Computed example of a mutant assay.
Amino acid sequence: MKNFLIPTFPSNTIGDVLSFAIELGRRNGARLSGIAADGLFSPAATPIQFVGEADVAYIQARAAENEVESEKLFISHMTAAGAPRLAPEETGFGFDWIGRDERGSLSVPEQARAYDVTIVSRRGKDAAPGQAALLDDCLFESGRPILVVPPERPQTFGDHIVIAWNASSETARTVALGSRLLNGAKKITVVETDSSNSTGPTAAALARNLARNGLPADFHTTPLAGRSAGQAFLDEAQRLGADILFKGAYTQSRLRQMVFGGATAHLLSHVTLPMFMAN
């Protein structure tokens, strides 16, 4: 992965995201592209037909302020870390900023379609306004994976990958989109629960096919034992010493997860290691 998109906004969690992105970008020789996050004061987030002219002017002014603050925040983190600013034709480790003139009317999820991965922070009480919606929009509208970064994380990244397997098409797509990470892993463990209701290949079948491609894959079945599926996957990843979790996003409907909960909703708020997701 050589092209990272990083939605940026003033918040208590953005420093963790930027530090992680810089570390990963330096290791991979990747370009880090910052962009102002579509948030509470984004015109795209507030239907203009439902507000008056004065409200429109206020929203546009706050969006412009957010753009300026986000750009300053992103660039200050990059320069403090010694990352060079790259011209469009340059390659290798460095950064650029996608300003409003360049992106035009494109939203962050639309812009993300041209990038290898979008790096976002975990949900939580310190999340910025609109952060949860932006994360979901990137999952559903970009067609690309996201990498969710928690405040705490392992010292390594990508050495041991745990795949939270439920035989869904979303998880299969996540595995396919994460092939570059899988190819660089020292160990891959495909984990399923003992009460999966999905119809499809077992964890053993996926591990076997990954191994046929020369990957160091094994599988494991973990009992729920009264836990939710999301917590069971997280507990198992921690027990195995994984440093990244692969998870297909919203294998149940988003509405159902909002009402009844689900593995995706649980992990987006509680994951304690980087999580690679796609829908």
Rank of each mutant, 00 (worst) to 15 (best):
V190S: 04
L134R: 04
G130E: 12
A164M: 03
T156C: 09
T189G: 06
A127E: 15
S168G: 09
N183E: 15
T174L: 01
R144C: 03
G94S: 08
N197G: 05
T189D: 12
R144V: 06
K186E: 13
P109I: 08
E102M: 12
L106P: 02
L210T: 02
I98D: 10
A217N: 06
E89C: 01
P84F: 13
E110W: 03
A205C: 03
K187Q: 14
A211E: 13
T118R: 00
Y115S: 02
V149Y: 06
H77D: 06
A167H: 10
L134N: 08
I119R: 00
P154L: 01
E102D: 14
D126C: 03
I188R: 06
T156L: 09
G82S: 10
G104I: 08
I161H: 01
W97C: 02
L177V: 03
G178T: 06
D136P: 02
P109S: 04
V149R: 05
L147H: 03
D159S: 13
S196R: 13
A164S: 12
R212H: 15
K186I: 02
L73F: 04
G178N: 02
I161P: 03
Q131N: 11
D101F: 11
G94H: 10
L147F: 02
A164P: 05
T171G: 14
P216V: 07
I188N: 10
F74C: 09
A112D: 00
M78W: 01
G124D: 06
N209Y: 14
S179I: 13
L86M: 04
A127F: 10
A167R: 14
L139W: 10
G92T: 13
Q131L: 14
R123F: 06
A176T: 12
E141R: 15
E170C: 04
E90T: 07
F157L: 09
T199L: 03
G124M: 06
C138K: 01
L215A: 08
S107Q: 14
R212G: 13
E152W: 07
A114M: 07
F157D: 05
G92S: 15
L147T: 03
L73K: 01
G184E: 15
S195M: 06
N166P: 10
R123D: 13
T174A: 15
A217H: 04
L73M: 06
I146C: 10
T202I: 00
A176R: 15
D96E: 14
A132D: 15
S195W: 00
A127R: 04
A164Y: 10
P216G: 12
A164W: 06
E90F: 05
D101V: 14
A80H: 09
A185L: 02
E152S: 13
A87C: 01
A217T: 02
F140R: 14
T79S: 13
R173N: 08
D194A: 08
A185W: 02
L139R: 10
L177D: 11
K187P: 07
I163S: 04
I161K: 05
A127K: 07
G124P: 07
G82N: 07
R173V: 08
T199A: 05
F95V: 01
L106M: 11
R103C: 04
L147Q: 08
I98H: 08
G200L: 08
V149K: 08
V149T: 10
Y115R: 00
G92W: 07
K186P: 00
V117P: 03
V149S: 09
S169L: 14
A167C: 12
G158C: 11
E90Q: 15
L135A: 08
R208F: 15
